[in-house]
Simulated assay, not measured.
Amino acid sequence: MAINIIGAGLGRTGTYSLKLAINQLGYGPCYHMEEVLKNTNPQVQLWSEAIKGNSNWSAIYDGFNSAVDWPTAGFFRELLKEYPTAKFILTERNPENWADSFGSTILKLIEGKDKAPEKMHDWLDMVTLVLAKSGFPQGVDKDGLINGFIAHNKAVKEIIPEEQLLVYQVKDGWEPLCRFLNSPVPHESFPRTNNREEFWELVNSGS
């Protein structure tokens, strides 16, 4: 089973809504950080090895047809080589709003690692390394977050062939996504989820 759709957009850009939309369109199951939280063994170790350059994509994505969110988004270069015909989706939003959302969720989670349950520490260590790979080292300030976000999106647009890339905001709903995937537009409303409160519910479900 090969991955056909890859989300290159960073977390907190509507990636969970995109996951639900991809599943609804029939291109799932769609892999998301949620899968790592649900299956820390072996997923955390597999991603930790990928960070070192020892990737096993078939094991990571076993059973999945598509993938979005971190850690996936931090490996868009490697994944283009592994899946050269895949379609990539870059979810974007206002950089300053993204930095605020990231700072109150993912960054807060990483900075509070010492207060997290011990069984989450390996996962948090892996997430920290993925963030650094994506351009967000520990101690980064808000300006650094904004600059890193802009730099990541710029790199995706430069590296992914234009005909394989959709630059997308989930607020635009079904039409651009379905046009890119050559899929009929569903009658149901576009899924909108994973606000900041839902983020913490998701994280706590893995603890």
Score class of each variant (00 low, 15 high):
106 I>Q: 09
100 D>A: 09
171 K>L: 11
95 P>N: 09
78 E>Y: 03
88 F>H: 01
20 L>W: 03
193 T>M: 07
134 S>E: 14
93 R>S: 04
92 E>H: 09
39 N>G: 06
103 G>F: 09
99 A>Y: 13
15 T>Y: 00
42 P>I: 02
10 L>Q: 00
8 A>W: 00
168 Y>T: 04
4 N>L: 12
138 Q>G: 10
9 G>T: 03
46 L>G: 03
204 N>R: 12
132 A>I: 04
65 N>K: 09
18 L>T: 03
178 C>G: 06
127 V>L: 14
97 N>E: 15
110 I>K: 11
123 W>C: 12
181 L>N: 07
159 I>T: 14
143 D>L: 07
149 F>H: 07
88 F>M: 04
25 L>C: 11
2 A>I: 12
34 E>S: 14
137 P>V: 03
122 D>W: 10
32 H>T: 01
128 T>R: 12
97 N>A: 08
108 K>F: 06
194 N>P: 08
99 A>E: 14
121 H>W: 14
57 W>E: 15
71 P>K: 00
164 Q>W: 10
102 F>D: 10
106 I>A: 08
41 N>Y: 09
153 N>V: 04
28 G>N: 05
139 G>N: 03
42 P>V: 05
37 L>W: 10
130 V>Q: 02
8 A>P: 02
140 V>L: 14
58 S>I: 09
129 L>F: 11
175 E>I: 13
102 F>K: 05
174 W>E: 06
74 G>Y: 04
14 G>V: 01
46 L>P: 03
21 A>L: 02
54 N>S: 07
45 Q>A: 12
43 Q>H: 08
27 Y>A: 10
76 F>T: 01
90 L>S: 02
